[in-house]
Design a protein around this nucleic acid. Structure first.
Lengths: 351, 351
DNA sequence: CTGTTAGCGCGTTCAA
DNA sequence: TTGAACGCGCTAACAG
């Protein structure tokens, strides 16, 4: 009794049979490997086409030990930053025939380790890591043979490279702009220092302030974490120092939103009483009241650049560690005190 | 010459050897299949543990024809809605031992088809489809053997189910609330009708208006697409009709943002001249000026519910088509005319 | 240039 | 209850 020939998925063997060649030849023809006469190659390709042959990635992976799959670990895909990174990475990977498997590690650093392990078990060809692992030594171990690119974090000695923003330059732009508006006493919500981007932004602010001979008192720089609540709390504290700063610069959009609420809550007006500007441009920034002056950048290009770095490392035998910086630019609106008329605001908002 | 025993990935065979059993026994012990004495089972598990054995998902997939992988197609991962869906789906899938492979199809419907094909070739066990494919017939074909759950779209006869919002009820809440504020002539930016959510929102608005005997003139309902620009354009048109509506209700956050810009641009104040409220709650809604009254819902639960439906279909032999509705609720702020004091606004904003 | 064949690492059937 | 062997679908090494 022969099994009914229910139209099942055509295999390489079927293609070979239809083209009257061996299975090996069929494989070579479809993968463009080895010497092969044009005639047979075309015959095989035609047969494959007609049968609608789709090679099994699973079988192929098992054999070649390349999964054409990249793992991406993000702490929180809902955050605009990581969503942009993901979008950029996905697009670039797809262009190169790679798939993206996504793991949302959550904020808990403990889960990052297990996420990494899962992906390595998956036999991904590479990793994009957009959150710092708990123990770098442990991570280094599980990443022994899998290339890894860190996103928004400089971890010397881990992986094959990093893609980071021009953090210091960005803070410099903010300080420069505020100084241009005549401010000499500028407060800063710098966020935490547990990640390199935070450190760089804090130091960038300090350097820019000092460079211009502005007030660099420690009381003007406050930490906290990257949340709206923290921004609110720290900004409130900043407004209560003896000689109130006339401008506040924040190291992230969340901090800015919290600060916005705090300044409003204190009954102060922006930019008259306190000017404001922030790192991170968010799409609704022109719709806030007042429209928020920001340092912006292309989140998607962070992801694409990370993917590019990773693919390069995968191709090459001896990948050198490399660092890639994504540029930033100031987008002046009204919260800093710039003249920014309703017309351009509308135009920007609905763009 | 024996190959140097470089610490390579332990295989099932190594585990078997260490436990002094056959490969078959080792496999059974680790997968809990078949009859097995407790003694050998424990011995194998111990050996696997000690060696740090991690079974190869690739080999396993090839053998079992289950990849433990789900494909998710989104049009735009940067959009808060899809990001939330992705987060929810990822979390639920991970709980059940499944992986998520993400494809960003972009807005072009043509690419959805190829995304589907790619994922099916990948031998994913199921699909979450959060954007309507071009040709339903074609999609039905490529999905012949792969369970699929549609997100935010009712496609009768396609896949094993859908997860959608209570669209009509949500629009009803908005109309009801506006009516409560005394409005009888309410404008509506309903968005396009090419997807079921759009149709349901439009019809929900109309039904709610009629039910209450409010003005349901066609001039008060406008289409357009789901963009800020469209919201701006259509709201502007709405403000120019002979007898201006005293309230505007929008079917999405983008439409609301555009409308906000249009109302401001017309020199009108919210809610005094025009009251506003919208479908979709966004995290910065309380920080807008005025804080935006919305109909909100949990985007993550859309993803988790979709994943749950899909996994259920995968487990069962004869999956029945099922529809799941995610609840919505009104979040009253100030744009509708509600009294909403600064304190609660701040509290909500920094929450 | 082309055919043949041995696995990739695992799950599973058939025998014992 | 366990062992041995086969094969999932494909690529690569070798033989011709």
């Amino acid at each position: 009794m022969s099994t009914a020939p229910t139209t099942r998925r055509p295999l390489l063997a079927d293609v070979a049979a239809k083209a009257n060649v061996s299975i090996g030849t069929a494989s070579r023809a479809l993968n463009g490997r080895g010497e092969l006469s044009d005639r047979t190659r075309l015959a095989v390709q035609k047969a494959a086409e007609e049968l609608g042959f789709r090679p099994s990635p699973t079988a192929r992976s098992l054999r070649t030990r390349r999964s054409l799959t990249i793992g991406l670990v993000v702490p929180h895909i809902s955050h605009a930053f990581y969503a942009g990174v993901t979008e950029g990475a996905q697009a670039t990977l797809e262009e190169h025939g790679y798939r993206l498997i996504l793991v949302d590690s959550g904020e808990e650093p403990r889960r990052v380790g297990s996420a990494l392990q899962t992906l390595v078990d998956q036999e991904v060809d590479g990793l994009l890591l957009s959150t710092a692992p708990v123990g770098v030594e442990q991570a280094r171990e599980t990443l022994a043979k899998t290339p890894c690119v860190c996103i928004d974090e400089l971890l010397p000695g881990l992986g094959v490279g990093s893609v980071v923003l021009e953090n210091a330059a960005g803070m410099g732009l903010l300080v420069e702009h505020m100084a241009g508006h005549g401010h000499t006493r500028i407060g800063c919500l710098a966020g935490p220092e547990d990640r390199s981007s935070g450190r760089e932004r804090r130091e960038g602010f300090l350097a820019a302030v000092r460079e211009r001979g502005l007030d660099g008192s420690p009381e003007l720089i406050r930490g906290g974490d990257w949340t709206i609540a923290s921004g609110y709390r720290e900004a409130k504290a900043l407004l209560e120092v003896a000689e109130r700063p006339s401008a506040i610069v924040t190291a992230s959009a969340e901090l800015a939103l919290g600060a916005l609420a705090a300044v409003r809550g204190a009954g102060l007006s922006i930019p008259q009483d306190v000017a404001m500007a922030s790192f991170d441009d968010v799409y609704f920034a022109p719709l806030l009241e007042p429209p928020l002056t920001c340092v912006g950048y292309d989140t998607r290009s962070i992801g694409s650049e990370g993917a590019r770095l990773l693919l390069a490392a995968i191709e090459s035998e001896q990948p050198a560690w490399s660092e890639s910086r994504i540029g930033v630019e100031l987008v002046a609106r009204r919260s800093c005190g710039c003249h920014y008329d309703e017309t351009s605001q509308l135009a920007e908002a609905i763009a």
